[in-house]
Design a protein around this nucleic acid. Structure first.
Length: 237
DNA sequence: TCATTAAATTGTT
DNA sequence: AACAATTTAATGA
């Protein structure tokens, strides 16, 4: 039985390299960096393990250092709906952290991942003291808003090829997920879970996208060739 | 470091 | 859902 409390018992301080993987760290002044570094913890989340659950009070603001997480929510009917994947470089929960409310979604590891956590109190301290941090959070909120609107559009698409293309485009978002780069480490099975299609169908869609020159399929990952093509994927092009 | 083996991932039916 | 083919990771000499 995976639980998020287990995560708390396996945390440790960050290494130099892991600090470099945190996109907002270099925006801070030396004093602010020291404060953040004192508080930052990192933990390994195993496959299927929950990083946070709906309804739990916010204790940390989380970021993905390595791996892949899934953001989902349980509907009133008891169904699980997946919002998005969170690849390396992605930070989430700032909305709820700011209001000190409870998490509004579940975050589950799609594979073994390294997750960094900043305590809410430190998060607030940084908001009160650092202009650079504020800019980062504001930019993050703005970018995510755009992504959620796009996610709604994706949900209405019936064509699987287009759904896969648009979902991929959002995972390759360089603002929200600066850790991804040219190659996104994701298996076709993981992508299938995120998009809500069978692996076969995802494989077919990826092959189609590759033949269009939008992406390149690699073992255990995907390389973007033309991000714009992914974003503007339509029928009969 | 290299060769062998196991495990993971992909492509196809 | 099941299968074979391919790629990577792990193991040990």
């Amino acid at each position: 039985m995976p639980s998020d409390s287990a995560l708390h018992q396996r945390r440790r301080a960050l290494t130099e390299g892991e600090l470099g993987a945190i996109p907002w760290f270099h925006l801070l002044s030396p004093a602010e960096q020291e404060r953040a570094n004192d508080d930052l913890k990192i933990a390994d989340a195993d496959l299927g393990e929950y990083v946070c659950r709906t309804g739990r009070p916010v204790t940390y603001w989380f970021g993905v250092v390595d791996g892949l997480l899934k953001m989902s929510s349980d509907t009133a009917e008891g169904q699980t709906m997946t919002f998005t994947g969170v690849p390396p470089g992605g930070w989430f929960g700032e909305g709820t952290a700011m209001k000190r409310e409870t998490y509004r979604y579940n975050i589950q590891a799609l594979r073994k991942s390294r997750v960094a956590g900043l305590h809410v109190d430190t998060f607030h301290w940084l908001l009160d003291h650092s202009i650079g941090f504020n800019r980062f959070v504001m930019n993050q909120l703005n970018e995510r808003l755009g992504q959620f609107i796009a996610a709604r559009e994706i949900d209405r698409m019936t064509n699987p090829d287009i759904r896969v293309a648009r979902s991929l485009a959002s995972l390759f978002n360089p603002v929200l997920y600066p850790g991804v780069g040219e190659v996104l480490r994701i298996t076709q099975q993981e992508l299938a879970y995120l998009v809500g299609l069978s692996r076969q169908r995802v494989n077919e869609a990826l092959t189609a996208l590759a033949s269009q020159g939008a992406i390149q399929v690699e073992y255990g990952g995907l390389r973007v060739i033309d991000l714009q093509a992914l974003r503007t994927q339509t029928l009969f092009r």
